[in-house]
Computed example of a mutant assay.
Amino acid sequence: MQDSARRALALTRSSTACERTADITTTGRRTGRPHRIEIWFYRVGETNYLSGLPGKRGWYANLRADPAFTLHLKHGIHADLPATARPITDPAERHRILSDIIDDLNQPHNPARIAQPTRLEDWENSSPLVEIQFDSSPNHP
């Protein structure tokens, strides 16, 4: 992975919404066709994650069926990074990761802050959460 891509992935608490925004291409679980959407990604420690507001998400169902996907960086750098999704289902692991994400989102100085405070319990109960594992395999969408 290029250094510029590594820098783009190294989000901090002061990262803007624009810096957190990327696209992902998953494989449709029913159609088998590529499906591209815009999404925010997060960083906890040295690891990047995909998550979202509580509720069912098609992208998450697609990644559960086929974990290979492409993360498309598009702000400051344009890069298509092949990756594999590791769904985070263990309650303790979800709590640790989502606590950090929610704390970040709830910071009043954070330009990526959601309009109203976000409740950790809501995200723990029904938000999708996957670890992004980057690789160099050519067999990704």
Rank of each mutant, 00 (worst) to 15 (best):
A61S: 14
R29Q: 12
R29K: 10
W40A: 09
T26C: 08
E124I: 00
T25Y: 13
S136M: 01
V130A: 07
I97Y: 13
G28L: 03
L71C: 05
L73N: 10
K56R: 13
P54S: 05
N62D: 15
P108I: 02
A68E: 15
A8Q: 13
R29A: 04
P67Y: 06
G52K: 06
Q2K: 10
T89H: 08
N62P: 12
A65Q: 12
R33T: 00
A79C: 04
P108S: 06
P67M: 01
L63Q: 11
R113G: 02
L81C: 05
R33F: 00
E46R: 15
I88C: 04
L71Q: 05
W59H: 08
G52W: 08
L71A: 03
I39E: 13
R6W: 14
R119M: 05
N106M: 03
E124T: 01
L11Y: 12
R13L: 15
N139C: 00
R29H: 10
Q116L: 08
P82K: 05
L63S: 07
L53M: 08
A61W: 13
A65E: 15
H95P: 03
N139I: 00
R64V: 15
H109A: 11
A8D: 11
T26V: 03
M1T: 06
H72V: 01
R43P: 13
L53E: 09
H109I: 02
S99T: 12
L50C: 04
P141Q: 07
G76S: 04
P108M: 09
N62E: 14
N48T: 10
A79H: 14
A5W: 13
P141W: 04
R6H: 15
N125S: 12
A61K: 09
T16H: 15
A115Q: 11
D80I: 00
R96L: 06
E121S: 06
E121G: 01
T47Y: 10
A115D: 15
R57A: 10
I88V: 14
E131S: 04
H75K: 02
T27V: 14
A22N: 05
R36M: 01
D122C: 00
R7K: 14
F134P: 06
E19N: 09
L105W: 11
N125G: 08
S136L: 04
R57G: 01
R64C: 15
I24C: 08
I24E: 12
N48S: 11
W59A: 03
I101F: 07
P128K: 06
N110G: 04
I102F: 10
A22F: 14
N106Y: 12
A65S: 12
R33M: 00
D3S: 09
S14W: 10
S51W: 07
G52Q: 06
